[in-house]
């Protein structure tokens, strides 16, 4: 996992989001055991208390679960992971829309820009 942090958001929310991305993209596959809080914190270069908070948040969202002695595991519930994926995508779309609006780009222009971008991608292939 690559960790990077923006300056204007709480570190804990960024950790939640980045681990979520990890789960959705399969960096942390379903059912896999997560490293310990301290190891994850050391890897991300963050405070272990903050990492603990982020994992607790993910647990309450149902993306990870803990087993008393064995540690924390990624959920095996594929539907839940799919849901998380959609949530993340929606957040990106919302951010994108916000940027388009602030540039005063109309709906049609936005759509045609998207079409062109998709065309470029398929053209490359």
């Amino acid at each position: 996992m690559r960790w990077s942090f923006a300056n204007d958001l709480p570190i804990y929310t960024q950790l939640v989001e980045q681990i979520k991305v990890g789960v959705v993209t399969g960096a942390f596959p379903p059912g896999e055991r997560l490293p310990s809080v301290r190891d994850l914190a050391t890897e991300a270069g963050v405070n272990p208390n903050t990492m603990q908070r982020a994992l607790a948040q993910l647990e309450s969202e149902g993306l990870v679960y803990s087993q008393r002695t064995a540690g924390r595991f990624v959920t095996e519930d594929e539907a839940r992971i799919g849901e998380a994926k959609r949530d993340l995508a929606q957040k990106h779309v919302a951010r994108f829309m916000e940027a388009m609006r602030s540039l005063a780009i109309s709906r049609e222009e936005t759509l045609s820009l998207l079409e062109a971008e998709y065309g470029k991608e398929t053209g490359d292939e």
Partner: peptide
């Protein structure tokens, strides 16, 4: 730290 980032956005 998180409170500073949350409430002040910096």
């Amino acid at each position: 730290v998180d409170e500073i980032r949350e409430t002040r956005g910096v």
